[in-house]
Write a protein that binds this DNA or RNA. Structure first.
Lengths: 345, 345
DNA sequence: CTGAAAGCGCTAACAA
DNA sequence: TTGTTAGCGCTTTCAG
């Protein structure tokens, strides 16, 4: 599997293995002449380091692990892309694992990554409480930053978005478009994203005097199917609200689909908003008004925090960082102000 | 990082490290009494194997690497999910890498996975020729199977779908729906998927006497944007064909979107088909008729081949396997026969 | 500036 | 059945 070793290179170059190591890892003093000889020998033999041996020796792997709740949610894959992109600049590689929204699987993935000596872990915890122990345990062993979602009972760095502020923008926009009542469709309140978004929704609705009927809050999961099912229930119950606020784009896509099926005009009869600005959000009919998270910035901060934590290492670093970036509202055709604005063109 | 080692366990249990190893790895003869002592000691100390040390010793990692052209293409993520699922049963873990459709990045990912002693690699090559050297080189070093796409100039196992047969179904269905002319929108012919699909399209069109205008073949990339752009060009040129056959669902989603924008009725004025049956294919307006690949079966076969190859190891296994599974046509609302059938309900 | 030698944690001969 | 020993390939003191 692994063929040529440092020993063979050293033999060919007529030096010791120690010298070869010094040349190849760029540390320690080496004369220019020897360096050239070694490099040539390595080249000729097609030498490649054995990262496993190196890791065993160094307990460093130049590798970062990332765990996301669901790889089939386009929001997370695009977050992964952003992270990978940033990591590339640092010469680090990313190992990705999917927790399938299951804290038990998530715990296994975390410990497996930790055991493999990744230099740090980026995780978006799948559950708002049950993910806690595994995340905290992992964080005690190596640098870890939570991304997007946050799990209670832990004390680690976090980078994400100000969901409450985002919801304020959404509600203001809807209100401006004439909405005086609103429904909410999200996942169960078992993760911080939905929690925060729902809290933000609720608070701003109150401040604006928008009514939220208790029967018009639907909590299921982050999927198109759920959005569709919840919307169907909403319609069947009669008494449509002016707006349906969704906790993510997948749900919103399901909602607009159900509306099409029921012949309900969006945004004329009911306005609909999503969250995340995934690529498909502009493909629905109508294209979704949604909240854009600055993924690249989030990724950048996460990697920066990880690097900082690695450097600080054992010296107990201070309190953990909580970085909430500012999201932006992307107005498209599923809300009234947006529809009106576009019509003016 | 890694705390308790086999040595500490052996000390606590009052046996040698070798014995501990035998107990923990389940190999070699151990007396029941000793076994119990060792297990308890390990338990109490919270021992966890160090996979790195084990890998260095064994050159086995119980780990499989997977490289896909694009993690943001839902077809590949669902393929990843299937593979991961199958692997779980084998007690193996998956490391996923994204080649970003770039053969150079792909080569790096492959060699990095190989260097990390994954037990096997599953790759869907991003380029039909340029991916060749890296794939072959990797395949010479360890078990490798190509998935979905296939790269020329290599000799490895492959599992995928019979694209030509799939296209035959698509064309027959379109023809049945009254189409007598067709356009094709795909990616550049630099990967086997598009090649095969285009070939199948072309051949069956000829057999059925459907006309294909040379100007109505558009080759770009697998993206919604490209589908939209190509459709726009098609429309602008006037002279719409009866059907637009797309090499994947993303493209088809772009096409139907453009049709909506231009006020062209699908399927009445033009029928549209996709390929892959990604989740979003049913969300477009209208829902896409498309080709479903049996992802779970594909994943299953791939893992099976990998396992077989690992067992065969050095003993030169015979010629490589090429497994083409049979896809199925999923008829929805973007084609006429489908639309008619639904109307009957 | 370079080499000898120890050892990261684990497992597989080989002995006992 | 168990222990002793020798490495897997690399890096890093410590001498020279």
């Amino acid at each position: 599997m692994q063929r040529v070793t440092i020993a063979q290179v050293s033999e060919r170059a007529g030096v010791s293995t120690a010298t070869v190591s010094r040349v190849l890892s760029g540390k320690g003093p080496v004369s220019a002449a020897v360096e050239r000889r070694v490099r040539r020998a390595a080249e000729e033999l097609g030498y490649q380091v054995n990262p496993i041996a190196r890791a065993l020796r160094n307990s460093r792997t130049d590798t970062v692990g990332m765990v996301v709740p669901s790889i089939s949610n386009p929001f997370f894959t695009s977050l992964v892309e952003s992270v990978e992109h940033v990591l590339e600049r640092e010469g680090k590689e990313l190992f990705l694992s999917d927790a399938r929204s299951d804290p038990a699987i998530e715990a296994r993935r975390l410990s497996s990554l930790a055991a493999r000596n990744v230099d740090g872990i980026i995780v978006s915890p799948s559950h708002g409480t049950e993910s806690g122990p595994a995340v905290q345990e992992t964080a005690d062993r190596l640098p870890l930053v939570q991304l997007d979602r946050f799990v209670g009972g832990t004390n680690t760095d976090w980078v994400g978005v100000d969901d409450v502020a985002a919801m304020r923008m959404v509600m203001d926009h809807l209100h401006e478009g004439g909405a005086r009542s609103a429904a909410f469709i999200g996942s169960l309140l078992t993760n911080s994203s939905t929690e925060q978004r729902f809290a933000g929704f609720r608070r701003r609705a109150e401040e604006l005097g928008m009514s939220v009927h208790p029967d018009q809050v639907f909590l299921g999961d982050y999927s198109v199917d759920w959005g569709e099912a919840a919307a169907a229930r909403l319609v069947d119950a009669g008494n449509l609200p002016d707006a349906i606020v969704c906790a993510d784009d997948l749900i919103a896509l399901g909602v607009t689909r159900a509306c099409r099926a029921y012949g309900i005009a969006v945004p004329d009869q009911v306005q609909v908003t999503g969250y995340d600005n995934i690529e498909f959000s502009r493909l629905g009919e109508p294209a979704l008004t949604t909240v854009d998270q600055p993924r690249d910035r989030i990724a950048e901060e996460a990697v920066r925090l990880l690097a900082a934590a690695s450097r600080a290492a054992d010296t107990d670093r201070g309190p953990s960082a909580r970085i909430a970036l500012v999201p932006t509202l992307v107005v498209r055709d599923s809300t009234r102000a947006g529809a009106a604005r576009r019509a003016q063109h």
